[in-house]
Design a protein around this nucleic acid. Structure first.
Length: 296
DNA sequence: TTGCAGGGGTCAA
DNA sequence: TTGACCCCTGCA
């Protein structure tokens, strides 16, 4: 069948999608936006999103989502992989100089996943002062402890826990996940979400800056984490999460000197406009892969 | 083998 | 503006 420009077929316990462009699972899953997609020996990825455990493979022509059917694709994965967005237009718009052309060429297969906002929120609180392998380990531990088992073939995977589960956990018990000082933030934030103090449903309706201010009321959510939450949940693209890597790459490639966070934010707004979230993602992936500024 | 510095950020002083 | 914060890794 055809669905919004893609040809979709049923495979062996899987759905096969033809016509996907501007995609490469390595770029998309390893550009720092998500922590639950694990590369397998054959180059495919196992992952859990929502209440689904699947395997995703890509041969340059066919996107195969194993352990899913056409209904799942239409109701969930189409949106999750942002397949309604034409990334060739975005790339054309942000590749406005040699730096960006190189970055876009390097991460040509990045798509910004539309992840569950609650999961992104807790994942990026965990990311504070932490490295990717450790973040992935903690997210996995929390899911095993408080999530629900879902199966792919005979293997159990664990869904990301809901806010109630984290809000009602004891801090002592939560700390088994090895999150350290971040556990208190996770729990307090979970409480704020449960009590309705901050409504996740409302956020999408707010203007970006207002949503950002709302998010920053949560413990453990500062400017950088708030921008990540807005970008990776598909809520806003007019944010430019500025961590030390992005700061370094901007200083080295654009400013040619030290620059403040404020200067970088202002520059990104003026230079990339409402697409600065995408620009950030290409730059970030490029900077990490090439260790831009890693020595300074 | 052991010890120590510092990390993709936030908060409080 | 600066240091502390948990835990882990890399490197003497």
């Amino acid at each position: 069948m055809d669905y919004r420009g893609y040809r979709v077929e049923t495979g062996e316990n899987s759905v096969i999608v033809y016509g996907v462009r501007d995609f490469n699972p390595v770029h998309t899953f390893e550009c720092g936006q998500c922590f639950r997609w694990i590369r397998q020996d054959d180059g495919s990825y196992n992952g859990v999103a929502g209440s689904r455990a699947v395997n995703v493979s890509w041969d340059g022509e066919r996107l195969v989502i194993y352990n899913a059917d056409i209904d799942d694709f239409i109701n969930f994965w189409f949106e999750y992989f942002d397949l309604g967005t034409d990334y060739s237009l975005i790339k054309k718009a942000v590749a406005k100089d040699d730096v960006m052309r190189t970055a876009v060429e390097h991460g040509y297969g990045i798509r910004i996943l539309k992840q569950d906002i609650w999961e992104v929120m807790i994942s990026f609180i965990i990311s504070i002062n932490n490295r990717i392998p450790a973040i992935a380990r903690i997210v996995e531990a929390v899911s095993r402890m408080y999530g629900r088992a879902v199966f792919m073939d005979d293997t159990a995977f664990y869904t990301f826990p809901d806010a109630h589960s984290l809000a009602t956990a004891s801090l002592e018990e939560l700390k088994v996940c090895r999150g350290g000082f971040r556990c208190r933030y996770m729990q307090k934030t979970a409480e704020a979400i449960c009590s309705g103090e901050i409504s996740l449903g409302e956020l999408a309706r707010l203007e970006t800056n207002t949503a950002r201010q709302e998010l920053m009321k949560l413990p453990g959510v500062g400017p950088k984490v708030a921008d990540c939450i807005l970008l990776y949940s598909g809520t806003s693209t007019d944010v430019f999460p500025t961590d030390v890597w992005v700061k370094r790459v901007m200083e080295e490639l654009y400013f040619k000197r030290k620059a403040s966070f404020r200067e970088i934010q202002d520059f990104s707004r003026k230079y990339f406009g409402d697409l600065r979230g995408y620009a950030q993602q290409y730059l970030f992936y490029y900077a990490r892969e090439h260790k831009i500024g890693a020595g300074s």
